[in-house]
Amino acid sequence: MADPEKSQEDERKSPAFGVVATLLGVFAFIVAVGVFFSSQYYTSPSGTVVAQSLGTTEVNGQSMPHVALNFQTYPNSTGSRNAQGTGPGSVPVHSSGSDSWPAYGMSNVFQVPAHSLVTVTVHQYDSGGPLNNPWFSKVHGTQDGTATVTTPDGTSSTVSSWDQNNIGHTFTVRGVPGYDPNFFLSVPLPTNADLPNNEGSASNQDNGQSYTVTFSFISGGKGTYAWNCEAPCGQMVAAFGGVMSAYGFMSGFIHVV
């Protein structure tokens, strides 16, 4: 119980200081939390992979820039949940040049110019299996609706679909609400039961065999697009948990600038 003198003193004290201190304190807390979560915004640990210019080209009578984008998918990345099953899609820091595994770092953020012809080359090292939906075994949205697949033994073929039971991953890009929502691209990245198991140590992967998939598409308008894999390569229900449900493995962004 407060004594009368103290209470008199209390009443004289202006609450302004306490109010301002509370407001600033809570505001600082909110900002700190915002900074914390915002710092988790998916930016690639190895930086953005910028497509390399190949000059200009003509598509359907229109002149446009031509760029190349190269990346790999490899299994068993660190950070995948339970470290079981197959792993993340990833690209090398240096998107061309040295092919040695140790030089690779994960990056799932790409950058391509707007309204350009983008030629993508993917080295697919991972094992795989059947798709949840055979629709993704077809090539959608590339030039001519095809992709060129080179198998580990070196034979090349131009295809518009692949055996739905032998898909490692897919590279599926969509326009996001607000930017070019009609944009859609999906290419299956094949694998084969005969593909040597590349999962394991880096040295295994050094000698790993890959399917190489090449295709071209015309990029949309400026903005950020989302890409992800649509093959069931994760864990839990429908194999879409784990790495499939976290940015940085089987999903990322494409900045179109």
Binding site: V176, P177, A226, N228, S245
Partner: peptide, 11 residues
């Protein structure tokens, strides 16, 4: 429906 729910729309 998970990670990319916001992108799950079509015309």
């Amino acid at each position: 429906c998970g990670l990319n729910h916001a992108f799950m729309n079509n015309k």
